[in-house]
Design a protein around this nucleic acid. Sequence first.
DNA 1: GCCAACGTTGGC
DNA 2: GCCAACGTTGGC
Length: 155
Amino acid sequence: MAKKYWLFKSEPNAFSIDDLQNRPGTKTHWDGVRNYQARNFIRDDMRKGDGVLFYHSNADPLAVVGYCEIVKEAYPDHTQFDPDNKHFDPTALQKEPRWFMVDIKLKEKFKHPVTLKAIKENPILKDFRLIQRGNRLSVFPVNKKEWDEILKMGR
DNA sequence: GCCAACGTTGGC
DNA sequence: GCCAACGTTGGC
């Protein structure tokens, strides 16, 4: 199957690309996604080796700050079962997990973060889902043309 | 802090 | 199944 591409949003206050860089092996599990559309992308479509753009939301600057690779495919997000966790889901069943996560590994932190402003100004990226009206999904697919352009801008 | 956009919940 | 109320996201 052809390699696919994705974008993950993260608020750097909660988890930044530097936090990822400081993790052992520069890897992390991507927990806490609680939206069904995003869940379906994670559970059904993401494959080992797919590329992931790492975007800082609610931040300064707002920007794609690097890219990653999926190193482990979907498995149950343990935080849904943890009453002390912010993302606890009291209706999720152990035998039938509702929420899933993948593991990602940092490949490269961009020399030049690709700002939301620069993305909006680039005609090649005019259809990029990130800048579409009302886009609030924290996880969504990116096409190869967009992926290539973002990497070109960031490196 | 504001607010538009959107998802979820729950009464009917 | 409809829809009002509410909560969250996220740019500005």
